[in-house]
Amino acid sequence: MTTIVTTPQVIERRQKGPGWGQVLLAAYVLLFFAFLLLPIAIVVLVSFSSSSFIVFPMPGFSTQWYYRIVEYRPFMQSLLVSVEIALLSALAGTVLGVPAAIWAVRANTNAAQVFTNVMLAPISVPAILLGFSLLYMLSALTLGVSFLSLLITHTVVAIPYISRTVLAVYRGIPADYEEAAAVLGASRAQIFFQITMPLIKPGIFAGALFSVLISLDNLPLSFFFGGASSSSLPVVMLSYMQNQFDPSIAAIATVQMLIAIVALGIVNAIYGVDKLTAA
């Protein structure tokens, strides 16, 4: 038997350049980000304006508006109120919302199903309506316009954000882990703190983060509770804008945005945002 060996001819294939589709896609992505980020970028830019009005393009550069917002007490005071309310309502929402979510997932009853839907109510009715009715209710309870009322109001909204995310995470965790722990002798409390909590932590973090960001930015609810010690930053910003139109509003907005970014950064550092969004 003979074998004929031939050298295979090498065929050079022409490499295709990027097609029209790819160019269009790149243009679209660029446009998309411009649409998303340009307004924000302009606000940040304007906060460094030397003009006493909000104009764009701006005549010159100055940091005067940052001095102005630090000196203007209502801004600083309401910023503190906003941060306090955001953190405390997230905490209260976690304490109240997590057990509710856990029950709703594992209780295999119709009541749990109804509850899961009703839990969404505070974020599905118009915020104005919710704020208005809470004002009535809390006034009837003699709490009226106060820091506590504001906190309660924000907690009402924090609960659905937190319990819904925890609910989603917890649903994906089979009961086996908890059952395995039970067979190994764990009490209910041990199961909750040593098994369940660590497993739903991503959900708690994500929900609490959402609720903090929502609370920081919430105007319609806070509006009803804006007293001397309980005006949140958005409320003060709105009333400021009704009288003045200088770039200090852009400066305080930039500060608020920075706080949100820092909050995200902290959570990312200790937890990783990719894990949050995966939840």
Partner: peptide
Amino acid sequence: PNRRGLGMVFQNYSLF
């Protein structure tokens, strides 16, 4: 279950 003193291996192991 936590007071029965049993051991159990689950189908998907359920390791923590």
